[in-house]
């Protein structure tokens, strides 16, 4: 009996710690490696950076960390501009996703159960095709000889093809298209659970339909909005593929800078520093948010 209880307690401790173990192994450990590299100097070697401790000198290791990479990031405003541009693009895309996704999620949540299933399926369906393939498809649609331009030319709306591909417009389109489901699904989950009686109660107490929305539906769905925004904003901030394929050559997004430093310049330490700062940019607002949510509850 005692042994059984002991086993049960161990098992429970294991199950509870499992997600932490996962985070430790696959998030914290890799990040610490990246963080470590960000303090190294680039060298032409394998691996292409200096080790944190130099063991060759004496019998003991000598710490050889440098803040040069961070100093360089601060001195060259190219990086600051890239961060700002990425934040701007991710923020606008997130906003567009909310504006588009909210009515869609609302519509799905209020649809008849059989229709609802089909609509949800339609939202998820694009995931069945490769992400890369879908971005390439947008290139075909947006290019000067693409679907949109051909259609507009044929209709006589324009005389010359519009330059949509390789502009910021194309980047926004690509990001909103790709991440919209991540906004719709959490929003749908909260809106579907919303008790219709709650809306009726507000209406019964004298609120007109629009007032009911702003007083009841919107505040109750706030957790869904926040979840959706995080799910869109975070990956959009570091997005590389969409700006690389759909954006212009001059599009300064941090994901591209990171890629260039890593692969083109083979400067792993600088790339690591870029990534570390990106993480700080993400972690700080999330911590503030969770603090605010705890205060609200």
């Amino acid at each position: 009996m005692k042994a059984y209880k002991q086993r049960a307690r161990l098992w429970r401790a294991f199950v509870i710690r499992l997600p932490y173990l996962w985070l430790l192994l696959f998030f914290l450990a890799p990040f610490l490696i990246v963080f470590k590299i960000s303090f190294a100097d680039p060298v032409l070697a394998q691996p292409p950076f200096t080790p944190l401790f130099d063991w060759t000198q004496a019998g003991w290791g000598v710490l050889q960390a440098t803040l040069d990479n961070y100093r360089f990031l601060v001195s060259d405003n190219l990086y600051a501009l890239s961060y700002l541009k990425s934040i701007w693009v991710a923020a606008i895309s997130t906003l567009l996703c909310v504006l588009l996704g909210y009515p869609m999620a609302y519509g799905i949540a209020r649809a008849r159960p059989d229709v609802r299933f089909i609509l949800l399926l339609l939202v998820i369906l694009p995931f069945w095709t490769s992400f890369l393939l879908r971005v390439y498809a947008w290139m075909g649609i947006l290019s000067t000889k693409g679907l949109i331009n051909n259609a507009l030319l044929a209709l006589g709306v324009i005389d010359e093809p519009l330059q949509i591909l390789y502009t910021d417009t194309a980047v926004f389109l690509g990001i909103v298209y790709s991440y919209l489901p991540f906004m719709i699904l959490p929003l749908y989950a909260t809106l579907e659970r919303l008790d219709i009686r709650m809306l009726e109660a507000a209406s019964d107490l004298g609120a007109r339909p629009m007032t009911v929305f702003w007083d009841v539906t919107f505040p109750i769905s706030r957790p869904g909005i926040i979840a959706g925004c995080l799910l869109v904003f975070i990956p959009a901030l570091g997005e590389y593929v969409i700006p690389a394929l759909l954006g212009g050559l001059d599009s300064l997004m941090i994901g591209r800078q990171l890629y260039d430093e890593f692969y083109a310049n083979r400067d792993w330490p600088l790339a690591s520093a870029v990534a570390s700062i990106l993480l700080v940019i993400l972690v700080v607002p999330m911590m503030l948010l969770s603090r605010y949510q705890r205060a609200a509850a």
Binding site: D195, M198, A201, S203, D204, L205, G206, A207, R208
Partner: peptide, 14 residues
């Protein structure tokens, strides 16, 4: 509903 001089107490309270 929002113009009627009646108020309701819901079963689920809402």
């Amino acid at each position: 509903a929002f113009e009627r001089p009646l108020n309701m107490m819901f079963q689920s309270y809402a």
